[in-house]
Amino acid sequence: MRIVITGASGNVGTALLRRLIGTGDGHDLVGIVRRPPPAEGVYREVTWHATDLADADAQDRLRPIFEGADAVVHLAWGFQPTRNTEYLTRVGVGGTRAVLGAAHAAAVGHLVHMSSVGAYAPGRYGDYVNEDWPTLGIRTSPYSRDKSRAESLLDEYLDEQGNAAIPVARLRPGFIVQRDAASGLMRYALPGYVPMPVVPLLPIVPLDRRLCIPLVHADDVAAALVAIVHRCAVGPFNVAAELPVRRADVAEVLNARQIHVPSQILGTLVDLTWRARLQPIDRGWLDMAFSVPLLDCARAEKELGWQPTWSSVAALADVIDGVARQASTESPPLRPRSMLEQLRRDLTEGLMTTRHLP
Score class of each variant (00 low, 15 high):
2 R>P: 08
3 I>K: 12
5 I>V: 11
8 A>S: 12
17 L>Y: 07
18 R>Q: 15
18 R>V: 08
19 R>D: 14
28 D>V: 00
29 L>R: 06
30 V>Y: 01
36 P>M: 13
45 E>A: 15
47 T>Q: 12
51 T>A: 13
51 T>Q: 14
55 D>R: 10
55 D>L: 07
59 Q>G: 08
61 R>S: 08
61 R>I: 02
61 R>M: 04
61 R>V: 09
62 L>G: 08
62 L>K: 10
68 G>D: 08
68 G>T: 08
68 G>Q: 07
71 A>E: 00
72 V>F: 06
75 L>I: 14
78 G>V: 00
82 T>E: 12
84 N>T: 04
85 T>E: 07
88 L>A: 03
90 R>S: 08
96 T>F: 03
99 V>T: 09
103 A>T: 08
110 H>S: 14
110 H>M: 12
111 L>P: 12
113 H>Y: 14
115 S>N: 15
115 S>D: 13
116 S>T: 14
116 S>E: 10
121 A>L: 11
125 Y>Q: 09
125 Y>K: 12
126 G>D: 03
128 Y>A: 11
128 Y>N: 04
129 V>G: 08
129 V>N: 07
130 N>C: 10
130 N>Q: 04
133 W>G: 09
134 P>D: 05
136 L>Q: 13
139 R>F: 12
149 R>N: 00
150 A>H: 03
155 D>A: 12
159 D>C: 11
162 G>E: 04
166 I>Y: 08
168 V>N: 01
171 L>I: 10
173 P>K: 01
183 S>N: 05
186 M>L: 07
188 Y>P: 00
192 G>S: 11
195 P>F: 00
196 M>H: 05
198 V>R: 10
199 V>G: 06
199 V>S: 02
201 L>G: 09
202 L>N: 04
204 I>Q: 14
206 P>D: 14
207 L>S: 08
207 L>C: 08
208 D>S: 08
209 R>M: 04
210 R>F: 05
211 L>C: 01
211 L>S: 02
213 I>D: 05
214 P>T: 11
215 L>K: 06
216 V>I: 14
219 D>K: 02
219 D>L: 02
220 D>I: 07
222 A>C: 06
224 A>S: 09
224 A>Y: 09
232 C>F: 01
233 A>G: 06
233 A>T: 02
233 A>M: 02
235 G>V: 04
236 P>C: 01
239 V>D: 04
239 V>T: 01
243 L>T: 10
245 V>T: 14
250 V>P: 14
252 E>Q: 15
253 V>P: 04
253 V>I: 04
256 A>F: 05
264 Q>E: 15
264 Q>N: 07
269 L>H: 01
271 D>Y: 03
273 T>A: 15
276 A>S: 09
276 A>C: 07
277 R>N: 11
277 R>I: 03
279 Q>I: 10
280 P>Q: 11
281 I>N: 12
285 W>A: 13
288 M>Y: 05
290 F>H: 08
290 F>A: 04
291 S>C: 04
291 S>Q: 08
295 L>S: 00
296 D>P: 01
298 A>E: 13
298 A>W: 06
303 E>P: 07
308 P>Q: 01
308 P>K: 00
318 D>Q: 11
333 P>N: 01
335 R>C: 03
343 L>H: 02
345 R>N: 12
346 D>I: 06
347 L>Q: 06
347 L>K: 05
348 T>W: 11
349 E>I: 01
354 T>P: 12
354 T>M: 13
356 H>A: 13
358 P>D: 11
